[in-house]
Design a binder for these strands. Structure first.
Length: 445
DNA sequence: GTTGAGCGTT
């Protein structure tokens, strides 16, 4: 052995990955102990990646790497060998001949381009030591950053927030779809309030009907990833024969609507997750509510969160929806609690499924209380939530404090400080422990 | 000198 006895990274196999066949920019990425590579691990280093390929040393042809359940499988029984693996990114342009018809190509693309414009993004909770340069450097992994403005007071003291702007919509979407840990702080990146309703958005989410019970979120993700980058999947449990898939590119989502696809031998139908019913019971809803089931079905959140499938790829669809990035499934307009806190807490409390994690155990994976060691004592009387999903009041104004924080359970005063839900490091019912949560920020010096 | 929810002296 070597003299790094206290350093156990060599129990993981590292594989060399690059964006192209030039390995000078390659990154070595650790596999899991079973030899597979988590897609989320790949995405963490290569945002937007949806798979891997490699050039076969003998045939010299490019071969794809098998992706199943969010895991990339080594090309042979011998493992990953010492080959260079190349990231696969979703094709920018579309896929099917029908979509290249005159009606759908130029005109439609033009329309979309006009709609899908970048806006400034606000970054909240930046570390005090941030500089324009460091922030630019951090966000450049999502694409070209054309502007960084950190806000300071009259004395030049940094106020802990700022604005950034990307060169492309895709970069913006990638940044909005992820959580950001900058120098150990969870930083919220959002569309500024001043831009709310100004930045036009297209639905990124589709409704997938006729799902069979054996279709997991990972199945849907794997299948639909071939059409474009999937940022979120939600399959309600218990089984309800439908699911939702959210794409990074709204054009991909739109192009799939109206189509039938075969997954696991069954025909599913893809349709718009667009508004279908109007909610009268909840004054907090915006004018329209979305999808077949409002929040319960249509809502989603961080993928790869707090469940056994083991990884968190930092997708933050909950945030996206709240901020109008994806108009489908948005919460009430006057949703007072910082959405990131809700997301983090629900995730860590084992609600990852409700928020759309790959396990999709939904509200039912939370059986009668917060995780051990949690400070979330306000949950204790809500054990019925573990049986039949959220109480009806979730969608109504008399809910436990979603609106004004008057009732105590949800207002900020009752949230544990600093460490979030007990700081147990794991994702509630999940086992992977890779869910950092949003509210883990600690005071810094 | 301190801080940790917020929304931009363009």
């Amino acid at each position: 052995m070597n003299n790094k006895d206290n350093f156990s990274e060599d129990i993981f196999e590292y594989i060399k990955v690059s964006e192209d066949e030039d390995d000078s920019n390659a990154v070595e990425i650790p596999c899991e102990l079973d030899g597979t590579l988590l897609l989320s691990t790949l995405v963490a280093q290569f945002p937007g990646a949806c798979g891997l390929k490699y050039r076969h040393p003998d045939s010299k042809t490019i071969r794809g790497i098998r992706l199943s359940d969010g895991k990339l499988h080594p090309p042979s029984e011998q493992g990953w060998a010492k080959l260079l693996f190349i990231c696969v990114f979703p094709k920018e342009n579309k896929r099917k001949m029908e979509d290249v018809s005159p009606e759908n190509s130029a005109a439609k693309t033009k329309r979309l381009e006009k709609k899908l414009t970048c806006s400034d993004l606000i970054c909240l909770g930046l570390p005090w030591k941030s500089t324009e340069e460091s922030i630019k450097q951090y966000f450049e992994k999502f694409g070209e950053v054309v502007m960084v403005q950190l806000k300071r007071d009259k004395n030049g003291l940094f106020k802990g927030f700022g604005f950034i702007r990307f060169a492309t919509y895709a970069s913006q979407m990638r940044a909005l779809a992820q959580r950001h840990n900058i120098d150990g702080r969870w930083v919220d990146v959002r569309i500024p309030n001043s831009k709310e309703g100004v930045v036009p958005q297209m639905p990124c989410k589709v409704f997938v009907g006729r799902c069979t019970e054996d279709m997991t979120a990972d199945d849907l993700r794997e299948y639909f990833s071939k059409f474009g980058e999937v940022t979120d999947v939600f399959v309600p449990r218990p089984f309800r024969a439908f699911g939702f898939v959210t794409f990074l590119d709204p054009e991909v989502a739109q192009s799939l609507c109206g189509e039938d696809h075969v997954i696991k031998g069954a025909s599913v139908s893809v349709s718009s997750a667009a508004p279908k019913i109007k909610s009268k019971s909840n004054p907090n809803w915006k004018d329209d509510s979305y999808g077949p089931n409002n929040w319960e079905g249509n809502r989603s959140g961080p993928s790869g969160g707090s469940n056994g499938s083991g990884s968190n790829n930092n997708i933050d669809t909950l945030n996206m929806q709240n901020l109008g990035i994806n108009p489908n499934g948005g919460p009430p307009a006057n949703f007072n609690l910082p959405i990131s806190l809700v997301a983090a807490a629900l995730n860590q409390a084992g609600w990852g499924g409700f928020l759309g994690g790959p396990g999709n155990t939904g509200p039912n994976n939370w059986q009668g209380g917060p995780p051990q060691g949690s400070g979330g004592k306000n949950w204790n009387n809500n054990q019925n939530w573990g049986q039949n999903g959220p109480p009806p009041s979730w969608n109504q104004s008399n809910n436990p404090g979603w609106n004004g924080g008057k009732n105590g359970n949800w207002n900020q005063g009752n949230w544990p400080n600093g460490q979030g839900w007990g700081g147990n490091g794991g994702g509630g019912s999940g086992s992977s422990g890779s869910n950092g949560g949003w509210n883990n920020n600690k005071p810094q010096t």
